[in-house]
Design a binder for these strands. Structure first.
Lengths: 258, 258
DNA sequence: CGGCGAATTGACGGACGTCAACTGCTGTGG
DNA sequence: CCACAGCAGTTGACGTCCGTCAATTCGCCG
């Protein structure tokens, strides 16, 4: 499948590649190829070797971890995002499974070529390091989100993030199936339903995938969004539980008195 | 405080610095200084700028995240470990607070010098990227541990890891206060007590900080340790919830049937 | 000797998972 | 065109896990 120059531009615009020379860019993407996958395709399974850096150009990809016959969603990626960068840099096995949620166009970049470029060009290598540091921060935020907040609080913060990301209108639409959202937030679908119902008291109404936040203030007071958990990572490699909060309306930054 | 050459050797042995030239090593550590902190000292607080890469040479350091007046332990570091590498690479603010649990000797390395070295030497930069990728994997493991396992299962796996790390003897000693362990495992101290009591049925007996695993097999069957959650990161920058499992005695690798 | 903090234990309540039944939508085949 | 199967989502009942509050014990240090 030939790579359209439009798509190449979009890859080039990623922070990972924005700063490098045309020569190096051609070099890294030389052996790359574009592939189209139907919804529900498994791209990677946990523990298998990773040979490519993946770049999602269209569609949606879910990253999930499993243990003891249970699965949990660690991230849902939207275009344009790269994934499994860490495994590529270490030339090791993947930590999560990846499968498409919708039919998706994905660019597959040779991991070997990427590592070669890193060894040759310190500037590019530095950019990769920054990207990885950003991803690290994203997962740390997700871990804090999971350990410190209850289910309803996680949902409330997710809604506030989504609202901001989609332009700030009072009503917006959930980007994924509710069962995926539930797994991402670390709860069961049944519990997500109940959590939505609870948020009715805070002015949230739900109609299928349409959510409207009637009274932002009480919801904010419940959610207590925090720069150190909910801030947006600089777009590029997808950070876990990526959230955007354009501005906080009086979110008190509280610090624990050890 | 002068840096003893013994300590310098130990820093040099870290995977971060093992591969670089003597010149570059001197360059990075040129402005570094050693400092001694009493127990309970706050080294960094969440959200503040990070100017140094920290290297723990003696003692113990706790990394914690806070939200809404609650705190959770994200990692407990033991010598020799570096920390806040990601923040240094991004030249940004810290994601977690750090404070000493015991009196500690800590080497403080100029973040600016580190970044300069990365830009100059692609090989070193690559090593930093690998280190960051390893850290990333560590947090992903911690997140899976938190989302997929219950409290008792997390404790069981922690005990198995500690036993292996300390040489495999049936009885070993917990390295930290139980309240710190509880926070690391994502539960309250009261709940940790009860979890220990529950493990009595699986042959675990507790006596102060002394733990002995009487019958390993039933405990393993409960814990279901998993290479993709509990494997050991290559020592260096401290990975979150670092665990060591030398060998698994029949840990079935189960995969979720989506 | 007195006091403080860590750890344990019990009682209680709330949060969350599980099981089951029901609704509504969609795509398929008769 | 309609009947039906299948799946997502919701709701209710129930049990379990876990956090909170309180009381007690123990060891350590002043």
């Amino acid at each position: 499948m030939p790579i359209r120059s439009v798509d190449l531009e979009r890859v080039r615009a990623l922070s990972l590649f924005a700063g490098i020379s045309d020569d190096l860019f051609r070099d890294v993407l030389g052996g790359a190829f574009l592939q189209r996958f139907p919804a529900g395709t498994t791209l990677l399974t946990e523990g298998d070797p990773v040979d490519f850096l993946y770049v999602l150009l269209d569609g949606a990809v879910e990253l999930e971890g499993t243990w003891n016959d249970k699965a949990t969603t660690l991230a849902v990626l939207t275009p344009v995002s790269t994934f499994v960068l860490a495994s590529v840099v270490l030339d090791s096995t993947g930590l999560m499974s990846a499968h498409t949620l919708e039919t998706s166009n994905i660019l597959m970049v040779s991991g070997e070529a990427l590592r070669r470029a890193m060894r040759r060009d310190a500037g590019f290598c530095f950019t990769v390091a920054q990207e990885l540091a950003g991803c690290y921060g994203g997962v740390v935020r997700a871990l804090k989100n999971q350990k410190l907040r209850g289910g309803i609080e996680r949902l409330a913060n997710y809604l506030i993030s989504q609202q901001a990301r989609q332009g700030g209108d009072a009503t917006f639409t959930l980007p994924h199936e509710k069962r995926v959202l539930a797994s991402l937030l670390g709860m069961t679908p049944e519990n997500l339903s109940r959590a939505f119902a609870s948020l009715g008291d805070y002015g949230v109404t739900v109609n299928g995938p349409q959510v409207t936040i009637g009274r932002p203030t009480p919801l904010q007071r419940l959610a207590k969004p925090d720069l150190l958990i909910d801030s947006r990572p600089p777009a590029g490699e997808a950070a876990l539980s990526a959230a955007e909060v354009e501005r906080w309306t009086g979110a008190a930054q509280v610090r624990a008195a050890s």
